[in-house]
Design a protein around this nucleic acid. Structure first.
Lengths: 207, 207, 207, 207
DNA sequence: GATGAATGAGTCTTCATTCAT
DNA sequence: CATGAATGAAGACTCATTCAT
């Protein structure tokens, strides 16, 4: 009998502990590579106790993914239609890069999931995510039409932002292996580059 | 008593068949998620027969990875130091995107490997790959210094190209889920976007 | 997640059951010849359950060997330096023969291990066992020097006792095949023989 | 189609090569622990070719055992009923010890087989071997009755000789681990010990 | 709420043996 | 005579999940 809604304080705490441990394990090993033993050990709980809070390994994984997707899209929602176009996008790039630095496990969890065909969240991608992106692209298009933004395919522009910012979390070993610098320097120089890069590309030609 | 070097025609054929099947399975499921059963079935061979050609599951995986890394870096080597800076880089972007379209399984294989910490190829990353990138970055810097290319951190420029082009292979389900178009259109519009995007960003301001 | 130290009653019982079953199977078939299936069946447990108590087949084997080595050497430690030399040795021979009769499986387990090069206990042989034997040989030499014992190489004397007594456990099928008598008679006549034999050989010439 | 009787020179040679290789492998690893791959590799032949000469792994093992049993008992047959009792037995002890030094693999092969219940040669033990031993024991008894040999149970006397001499081959790692000397010294001191030991025990008290 | 105990279904790997040439 | 190729059967070990307390 797995619990559905956490009621007591201890239940909330344990569910959170498990999800945090699972995030560690799943992001490092992927879904198949992760084991309940690892998660239980990392959470400091017994295996059956973990399954008392979540009905199955897959349930933990799914709970993690859907719980995270919301947070993951927040930066996109934060784009202000009333703001300056280029500034808003540069701020978005910045926020996405910050998330890669602060939540690399979450980023890699999604990367793993999507690279392997997104079996657990394909619905959310084709539903809520698509809707959100469609909305943002409409805004971008308006900005482009009004001359506030250089004209591009807005969808691919968003893809490029996702790709370039998440790259620093998902492919971090490669970045680190080539740059041979510490994390702070990596993200610092990346921020400078992306800022300058998108500014040049997006600023409309005046006149 | 596993085969070491393919000698006969049938050995070459079967090794190739296995590697091709393994590419399917590994790119879809990652190393841990893939099973020898799947690979054997996909190759149309019995499981022990697969192990007659490769000593272990990991041996297949390693053979795939190292065999591919070479091919994977060819586009980078093809940049011509004597050519026009912007044109050369745009051609490189184009070649990378072509590879994502033509070899998405290979791209996802690497993505899987690197997202999970690159345990099997970290050496090649920190060795040959770093050397190659270092060389290319030196060239980029010369182009920037001579005014043929807008000035950027060359390493991050290369990372951005990898990220934006491989994105269409590695995160294809997401791209497809949002764009809701067929592959050809996805890659066609992506090519246009990336061409225009990098052209704007990289073309130096004329004096 | 294998048990490390037995805590509960059921753990102690099951560990003991497994070790006893393993003793049967290993002594009859050697390490390689034994299978976890046999051990599990003989212990009345499922194979995974056996591995719940011991991390591997080898762990069972090692636990058996090291747990036994102590017991195996007890008779040697029981030799009393203050006692009569010949009587003490004859008593030792007797105890060793008794052990062969009462613990033939243990004897064959060691025999199997040592005949195949003692890969698992070579360290204990060259360490604790050698030290113990060295000590006993010093005692034997004192007895020989004081004229209480016929002079022999003490090491080879001990080897001969090991060989002649363990022979009745290790080569029991051969002994039984040739004598064609029951176990009790075999060991009874063996005891008489060894007693008389060692008495004649070891009693110093008077005068 | 396995060959039954070797006809050509090459057949004889290959059969002998296989048996020699098998002796290496079986004596080191026991029947179950040995693999056809090891035997084939050690013989420098392909695995199917090995099975061309012997129908199965077991056939090789059986051929080895029965081919060796003859040789193994030669020293016993060489006891001369017309010779001096004590001298003859001391010579037998000596010959047996020599065999342990010169043919340790053969000795360990038998030891392995018998410790594990002699499943392949129990018939020969209860037949030819028992007959031969019975005969020798009758001779020993005559010598004892005539006062040429101290009176003992002749069967156990023979067992003791087998045990003490084969010990240096079968338990060689143990002997070497305790003595910490080279092979030559081990066997040299053993020969001295056994000679003196059996002389004292067997020489009848002169009337 | 929690956990020690137990297991069915895999999953990789080994190996004696057979097939085809 | 000889061997490259292939496999069925077994064997060690893993793991998500269930049971019993």
């Amino acid at each position: 009998m797995t619990i559905q809604q956490p009621r007591t304080r201890i239940q909330k705490k344990n569910r959170w502990t498990i999800l945090d441990a699972a995030l560690d394990v799943f992001s490092d090993n992927g879904f198949r590579g992760a084991t309940l033993d690892q998660i239980a050990a990392s959470a400091g709980l017994s295996k059956p106790n973990v399954l008392y809070y979540f009905s199955s390994k897959e349930a933990i994984y799914t709970a993690l993914l859907s719980g995270l997707l919301e947070t993951w899209l927040d930066p996109l929602r934060a784009i202000d239609p009333e703001g300056d176009a280029v500034d808003e996008i540069l701020a978005y790039v910045r926020r996405k890069l910050d998330m890669s630095r602060e939540f690399p496990r979450e980023s890699r969890l999604f990367a793993n999931e999507i690279v392997q065909g997104a079996p657990h969240i394909i619905d959310q991608i084709e539903g809520p995510l698509k809707d959100l992106v469609d909305g943002t692209c409409a805004l971008l298009r308006r900005w482009m039409n009004s001359g506030d933004l250089a004209p591009f395919d807005p969808y691919h522009l968003i893809f490029s932002i996702w790709a370039t910012t998440q790259h620093y979390a998902d492919f971090n070993v490669q970045v680190a292996g080539i740059l041979q610098t510490d994390q702070d320097t990596q993200f610092g120089t990346a921020a400078d580059f992306l800022d300058e890069f998108y500014r040049r590309a997006l600023t409309p030609v005046s006149g």
